[in-house]
Design a protein around this nucleic acid. Structure first.
Length: 428
DNA sequence: TCTGGGGTCCTAGGACCC
DNA sequence: TCTGGGGTCCTAGGACCC
């Protein structure tokens, strides 16, 4: 496993959501901009000018800073996942021009193996990647390079804070530099150290990445298990997390939303759950998967008294991705969650035990007729129409028409790159 | 009035088996 | 009085990620 010539680059798009918005509205490179979570709840991405504003921070509830938008000090956008998803695909395709081994890690991050580039040319090569992505997509990126994924993350963390580096830092084989960076990195900023472990380590006096790296193995294993031990090995330059080129099939599929306003009628909750189930089923069909189990949850607002949260699940007799069947199960479960005295703020549907739709195990008592292709054709037709004419052009009556509970998205930009009718126009 | 959504992996403990 | 040892599978909950 130990390979000394290992070389991994972490590519990270700078303030990705905010940058996507700015690509199509260039004023937003300069104006303070925040992108909001779904339901316009809180800040999830912000550009540099916004970061300089007092009181504006990631995770900040939007209603606390909304006044800044009235006076023009701040611009807000709702999350436009159609746009971000498409822009992400463009960035990733560009990256694939530069390495045979690319792992798409998240919507705005990728790991690249750079083992095919000699040590002396790597920094220059990374600058070329950066320039090309910028040219092809308009998105600015940062690149950290090291022997392991975790050290590449460390390098990337510093790139963003040191302007002179111009977006690229290679710390491969540079152990003095590695120690310098680790000594100035707070332990909670290490990739894999979350809130709990951060607090625990600090209480033990382990407050920097360097101190964490130099702990004894048994100590780490005892307090943080094998996950923690792998992390520490990675900080020492021993690669435990390889670049995974092939994406593994997903194991679950969730659709959940906070409601635009509290749900007080059972009928509304049922409409929401039907809608979520239909969306989840659609996702499964796109990936040729079928669900063997389903769970539904619903809760009141966490920020109000008498918080109520409940979930229930069931196994399906036979795995399926057929919307009507899944909806039937979901509504049966949803009935158990309802309470007259609760105002619901959020609900969701989780599909699990996913299997390939062509390898479904039929149950002993199944009366499924494999010759009957009608349910399958019905779903194909449904998906095709909605793909062509827009989401929910054709839908189930149980999804509701009014949708009083619909998620807020007051500041939504256009789907510039995926809809003909929303294409940007250039006036000559 | 208002506070996100969608994932993964690991571990402990219980049920059950021989 | 005395009560094994080893294994698997499943689930819930806890940790983490973006």
């Amino acid at each position: 496993m130990l390979k000394t010539d290992r070389c991994i680059a972490l590519i990270d798009c700078n303030s990705f959501y905010a940058s996507c918005e700015a690509v199509f509205d260039p004023r937003l490179w300069k104006l303070p901009l925040v992108v909001l979570s779904s339901n316009d709840g809180c800040v999830v991405s912000m550009n540099k000018p916004a970061r300089a504003l007092e009181g504006v921070d990631k995770g900040k509830p939007f209603f606390q800073i909304r006044h800044l938008t009235y006076s023009g000090k701040l611009v807000a956008r709702s999350s436009n996942f159609t746009l971000y998803g498409d822009m992400s695909n463009r960035v990733m395709s560009t990256l694939k021009l530069f390495s045979p081994a690319v792992q798409i890690y998240s919507i705005d991050e990728a790991f690249l193996s750079l083992e095919h580039i000699s040590h002396y040319q790597r920094t220059e090569y990374a600058h070329r990647i950066r320039a090309t992505v910028r040219q092809h997509t308009g998105i600015p990126i940062s690149i950290g390079i090291a022997e392991t994924k975790t050290l590449a993350k460390v390098a990337n963390h510093h790139v963003k804070r040191i302007a002179e580096l111009d977006g690229v830092l290679d710390i491969t084989s540079n152990y003095i530099r590695q120690e310098e960076l680790l000594a100035t990195l707070a332990v909670e900023d290490v990739w894999g150290i979350g809130y709990r472990w951060g607090k625990m380590l600090e209480a033990e006096g382990i407050d920097t990445a360097l101190k964490l790296r130099d702990q004894l193995d048994w100590y780490i294993k005892k307090h943080m298990g094998v996950v923690g031990l792998r992390l520490v090995f990675e900080l020492r330059g021993i690669s435990c997390l390889p670049v995974e080129v092939h994406s593994r099939p997903r194991k679950s599929c969730m659709v959940s939303r906070s409601f635009g306003k509290p749900v007080k009628y059972q009928r509304e909750l049922e409409e929401a759950i039907t809608t979520f189930t239909a969306r989840a089923a659609r996702k499964l069909r796109q990936e040729h998967l079928a669900a063997g189990a389903l769970s539904v949850f619903a809760n009141s607002s966490r920020f109000k008294e008498n918080y109520y949260s409940k979930s229930a699940s069931c196994h399906l007799l036979t795995a399926t991705n057929h919307t009507p069947v899944l909806v039937r199960y979901a509504l049966t479960i949803a009935d158990k969650l309802w309470r007259d005295d609760v105002e619901f703020a959020k609900a969701g549907v989780i599909l699990t035990r996913l299997t390939d739709q062509d390898m479904i195990q039929l149950s002993l008592f199944d009366d499924y007729n494999s010759e009957d292709e009608r349910p399958k054709h019905l779903m194909e037709l449904l998906d095709e129409l909605n793909e062509r004419f827009g989401q929910e052009t054709l839908k189930f009556a149980a999804m509701g028409l009014n949708k009083c509970w619909q998620t807020r998205a007051q500041y939504l930009s256009k789907r510039w790159t995926t809809r003909w009718d929303e294409l940007p126009l250039v006036k000559c």
